[in-house]
């Protein structure tokens, strides 16, 4: 193809997106579009899978059978999200094994929030409420993103995430209305998860790269700072309602802006965790790599068995 032809294709491609048409895997797409999507979608898939670990940590210790069942179902949903997202990413011509390899080697990132430890039961409430809550704010706009498989996966994922968010908040309500010890547990969890949740919406606009391109491709609709403000404005009243205090002395309603003003985010902490030095980065990777390595002989056996079965069927057919 000549450069001229490629330019034409690119122009048509951008027009299709501007018209809100969906791009499907078999359609022509610029290489940069493909690579950007592989990166973002696989990063999202990895986040779902690594995100299973902090909550999985409380499955055996859930305080009641009802909560245990709900937690199991939630973590299983996250595995399901990982599965659709990996499958959607595979349509771009990369295999799940390659994507795992990128995760395990540290080349691919996942959401940093999952590098914080879950130290009490209340963390199950705080994660659902805040982390799934922030994820929804990030992801709802993706339901109408330009790449068809991603958009469709997001529609399904978002429905389940909002269920998780309500379930998490409900855990917090119960604790906040419980004994003083339970209420303190809830407050402590909010104290620990609040700032990392704000960081989850991404670096501040001044420091955020690839935003303009992402806007054009509808991978992003609002800036990180706008999303963060939306999250804060939505969450503060929910905390008030159950008598918990947001751990930010500078948090104040701004009548003029009709929004909350808030204190400085510790971006040094954010970058420290992103770069691999958070409280649990090593544990999370060890768990993922360990499961993968311990599973190798199982996957090999399944493959060998499937091949043998195939051979047997062929022999029978002869």
């Amino acid at each position: 193809m000549s450069e001229e032809q490629i330019k034409n294709l690119e122009a048509q491609f951008e027009e299709r997106i501007a018209r809100d048409e969906k791009i499907e895997p078999k359609d022509w797409m610029p290489e940069k579009y493909r690579q950007t999507h592989i990166r973002q979608m696989s990063q999202h898939a990895h986040s779902e899978i690594v995100g299973m670990l902090p909550e999985g940590n409380w499955i055996t210790r859930a305080p009641s059978l009802r909560r245990k069942v709900a937690l199991l179902a939630k973590v299983q949903d996250e595995a399901g999200h990982g599965l659709y997202l990996y499958s959607a990413t595979e349509t771009l011509g990369v295999s799940r094994d390659e994507l795992y390899e990128q995760l395990h080697s540290g080349k691919a990132k996942y959401s940093s929030i999952f590098n914080y430890p879950t130290v009490t039961w209340a963390d199950m409430g705080a994660i659902g409420w805040l982390v799934d809550g922030a994820a929804i704010i990030n992801q709802v706009p993706l339901c109408s993103t330009s790449f068809g498989p991603y958009a469709r996966a997001m529609v399904r994922v978002c429905k389940e995430e909002s269920f998780h968010q309500r379930q998490g908040y409900e855990i917090m309500i119960k604790l906040a209305n419980g004994t003083p010890e339970q209420k303190a547990m809830a407050q402590d969890a909010l104290n620990r998860w609040w700032w990392p949740s704000l960081m989850m919406l991404g670096p501040t606009d001044a420091e955020s790269i690839h935003t303009e391109q992402s806007m054009k491709w509808k991978l992003k609709r609002k800036s990180n700072d706008e999303l963060r403000q939306q999250f804060i404005d939505q969450t503060v009243p929910q905390a008030d309602l159950i008598g918990l205090t947001i751990p930010d002395p500078d948090l104040k309603w701004n009548e003029e802006r009709q929004s909350y003003d808030f204190g400085d985010i510790n971006w040094d902490e954010f970058w420290q965790v992103v770069k691999g030095h958070g409280p649990c980065n090593k544990e999370r990777m060890k768990a993922r790599v360990g499961a993968w390595e311990r599973g190798e002989w199982v996957r090999d056996a399944a493959m060998a068995y499937a091949e043998k079965q195939q051979e047997r069927r062929e022999k029978q057919a002869v």
């Binding site: 670990l53 499955i59 055996t60 069942v69 299983q76 599965l83």
Partner: peptide, 25 residues
Amino acid sequence: GALTGHGPSLETDIACTNISLDLFG
């Protein structure tokens, strides 16, 4: 249930969690 997140593949992980969920039900 304790195996959730640590299975040999995503599909078996989901299936084991499912068994756990059924049993707790």
